[in-house]
């Protein structure tokens, strides 16, 4: 399809921009990496030696070329905190964050879209006001606070949720052999139902804490888009044609409201992926958010750089997916491209 090709080509300028920014970022960070690498017992000569070894004594354009060559070889440098290549670390931890974000989004969509549709069918009714108020309250609390409250109620008081010890209670269960890196999927592939249930149970509270935050934008954009398409001429035509209420609501009104909803979903997903950081800390989740926090605290600039680069690339990919989705939803998008 020509559209996909064009849209893929369109991501190249953004990618170049991202690479330049992450490169400059490492130079804008406070402190001298050479002095940091040389260690506390270094003198001027050894720092200069480290600087030459890292290539930091060369001009910026030359350093940039080295950075590009390294990137082309998939070399993001080594992380100080783990001693491993940054790429390995990121690949290791990304699935955990994606899995959490995905479930959070599923929760938010499963609740937010019906709420938005319901509110839109009865604008300014009690139901509408309740929806608006409840999603606003959910968004008003910081995610980590919601997470702590949920842990307190469902783990400590009620004992319904498992201990918040990360992705799997490794004392009781063993992690499934790695295929995708997402425990729920890998345990299904391995046919291990117990581990699947356990990893799913671990996901519930952090996914809800994270998802509650995404509820407000999803419910409100759904409501706004539905109010508009329910009041549109083509909905009136459908009513004049005596089509059943469900058909008008879904095929006519909701499908036309999907485009703005899909756009917001893309934004919300990347936003959630970024705001994972706090939730991962609260639930001991071994994801990239927790990794980035410890990297920043340790001034581990290769890891930070790698994290930023990966998030930017994910963001670009996500936008690409949303754009492709838009062409499926609305034939006019394809036509205009």
């Amino acid at each position: 399809m020509g559209f996909v090709g064009k849209r893929l080509l369109g991501t190249i300028p953004s990618l170049i921009g991202v690479v330049i920014v992450t490169f400059l970022l490492s130079h804008a960070l406070p402190g001298d990496p050479a002095a940091y690498f040389a260690g506390p017992a270094a003198n001027a000569a050894s720092i200069a030696g480290v600087r030459a070894k890292l290539g930091l004594d060369q001009s910026l354009p030359v350093q940039f070329m080295h950075y590009i060559v390294d990137l082309a070889h998939g070399n993001l440098g080594n992380a100080l905190t783990t001693g491993q290549p940054v790429l390995t670390d990121l690949i290791d931890r990304l699935p955990a964050s994606l899995e959490l974000t995905f479930f959070a989004l599923v929760f938010a969509v499963a609740l937010g879209i019906p709420m938005g549709v319901w509110a839109a069918t009865k604008p300014d009714s009690l139901a509408d006001h309740i929806c608006r108020a409840s999603v606003s309250v959910a968004a008003a609390f910081p995610t980590f606070f919601v997470g702590l409250i949920l842990v307190y109620i469902f783990y400590f008081l009620l004992g319904l949720a498992p201990e918040p010890v990360g992705r799997l209670n490794e004392i009781l269960y063993t992690a499934p052999p790695r295929v995708t890196g997402a425990y729920t999927i890998d345990s299904l592939i391995a046919g291990d139902w117990n581990t699947f249930r356990a990893s799913l149970a671990q996901l519930v509270l952090p996914a809800i804490s994270l998802g509650l935050f995404a509820l407000a934008p999803i419910a409100r954009i759904t409501r706004a888009a539905m109010v508009q398409s329910l009041g549109s001429d083509f909905t009136r035509t459908a009513r004049a044609a005596g089509l059943p209420r469900g058909k008008i609501l879904v095929t006519y009104a909701f499908r036309n409201a999907l485009l703005p909803v899909a756009n917001v979903l893309g934004m919300v997903f990347s936003f959630l992926l970024g705001s994972n950081v706090l939730i991962e800390q609260v639930f001991g989740w071994q994801g990239i958010g927790a990794y980035a926090v410890s990297a920043v605290l340790a001034s581990d600039y290769a890891a930070v750089q790698g994290f930023v680069l990966m998030m930017a690339v994910l963001y670009i990919l996500l936008n690409l997916i949303v754009d492709l989705l838009a062409t499926v939803i609305d034939p006019r998008v394809r036509f205009e491209a």
Binding site: S232, T237, A241, G242, P244, N256, I329, D330, R332
Partner: peptide, 25 residues
């Protein structure tokens, strides 16, 4: 009863036909 009549025995056409049709169907 009205929904059963509308579209079958009683039909309507509107001004601005372009917006009166579902744009993505």
């Amino acid at each position: 009863a009205l929904a059963g009549v509308r579209g079958r025995e009683l039909a309507m056409i509107f001004q601005s036909p372009r917006t009166a049709l579902n744009p993505i169907r």
